[in-house]
Simulated assay, not measured.
Amino acid sequence: MKTLNRKLHSQRGASILLALLFLLACMMVAASVLMAAASNAGKIRSNYEEQQRYLALSSALRLVAGELEKAEYRGQYTFNLWSEIRAEEDGTETTTRYYSVTQAPGFFSCGELSKRKADGTPDGDAVLSFQKELDGLFAKEFTGVGCTRLPEDQVAALPTNPPSVLGSTPAVTTRELTIKVADAAGIEEQFGTVKVSADMSQSRRIHLKAWLDPGTSGDPTYVMEAELTAVNTPELGYPEEADRLPKDGPTTGDNITVLYENPEIVPTEQTEPAVTWRLDWITREIKKEAADG
């Protein structure tokens, strides 16, 4: 009987149970710490990747924007100057001076991104040349008597709406470049190259968009954007002589003598000052676009 009583009042089992409960609590705390550490490690890795994406996209955008800030466009045109001497019936002569103006292909330079042809003429098909589009805008200056625009097949239209608006008329004209980020170890290996598109609107603003090239294992849904605004508007400079009149071409007739006042080669005039661009804004963070489909 005494032995049974001692077993009923023994504390050894309770001690073991308390020890097990304490061990369980310690294990739960340790598991929570490990889960928090793993979560933080994942966040750090994710933040690092976001930072690398930002570096890749922002570097590419600033590179292209920097080249465009060096760009310039000058509208070009020629003047044909002549005098018409009309012999009157009374034997006197009347002299009237005229001019006509003809648009020529413009000059667009943008460093290595818009190389000119071997003969020095503008290359409208260069990687980042907006010459044909800007010629199309400049053609609006050639209105009225004595003005001749470039043929339609030598200019390009621009959308009336901002370039980012799809379905604008005429269609958006896009230039696309592939950029490799230099001096950034691991970026190209991890994210591939960067694609940058450049579009221009009627206001001559240039819209840039950068994304990771899916062809090099990049994620194209991460994008950054920037926009440059145009400075100056090209305008025609007409002859200074007040008595010179615009005319489509010389008058013909037996009683009319036409004297051209130009040199044998008609000089090409350029608009002054040139149109240039400056960076207006650039996004300070990358945004995630919805994947197609």
Rank of each mutant, 00 (worst) to 15 (best):
R6N: 09
R6T: 10
S10N: 14
Q11M: 13
Q11R: 11
R12N: 09
S15P: 07
I16Y: 08
L17P: 08
A19F: 11
L21N: 10
L23C: 15
L23Q: 14
A25E: 14
M27S: 15
M28C: 11
A30S: 09
A30Y: 04
A31C: 07
S32P: 05
S32L: 15
S32M: 06
L34N: 07
L34Q: 09
A36C: 09
A36V: 06
A38H: 14
A38K: 13
N40Y: 13
G42E: 13
R45Q: 12
E49Q: 10
Q51P: 07
Q51R: 05
Q52H: 12
Y54C: 07
R62F: 11
G66I: 06
Y73Q: 00
R74L: 03
G75K: 13
Q76T: 12
Q76D: 10
T78G: 07
T78F: 10
S83W: 03
R86T: 08
R86G: 01
A87G: 12
E88M: 14
E89A: 01
T92M: 10
T95E: 04
R97M: 05
V101M: 14
V101W: 11
T102M: 08
Q103F: 04
Q103P: 01
A104R: 12
P105G: 11
C110K: 07
S114K: 01
A118F: 09
D119E: 09
D119K: 13
G120D: 08
T121A: 05
P122I: 10
D123V: 01
D125S: 10
A126K: 00
L128M: 02
S129Y: 01
G136D: 03
A139C: 02
A139P: 14
K140L: 07
K140P: 02
V145I: 12
G146C: 05
A157H: 14
P162I: 05
V165H: 01
P170S: 05
T174E: 03
E176I: 14
L177Q: 00
T178W: 04
V181Y: 04
I187D: 05
E189K: 09
G192D: 06
V194R: 03
V194N: 00
K195C: 05
K195G: 07
S197N: 08
D199G: 09
S201H: 04
I206P: 00
I206H: 00
H207N: 11
H207A: 08
A210M: 10
W211F: 13
L212N: 01
D213G: 12
P214K: 12
G215M: 11
S217E: 15
D219N: 03
Y222I: 03
V223T: 09
M224E: 02
E225V: 04
E227V: 00
E227I: 00
T229L: 05
Y238A: 01
P239L: 04
P239I: 06
E240A: 10
E241F: 01
E241R: 09
D243R: 03
R244H: 08
P246D: 12
K247I: 10
G249I: 04
G253V: 04
D254C: 06
D254G: 09
D254L: 06
N255K: 15
V258K: 06
L259T: 08
E261P: 03
E264G: 02
P267F: 02
E269V: 15
Q270N: 13
E272N: 09
V275M: 08
T276R: 12
W277Y: 12
R278S: 11
E289R: 08
D292Q: 00
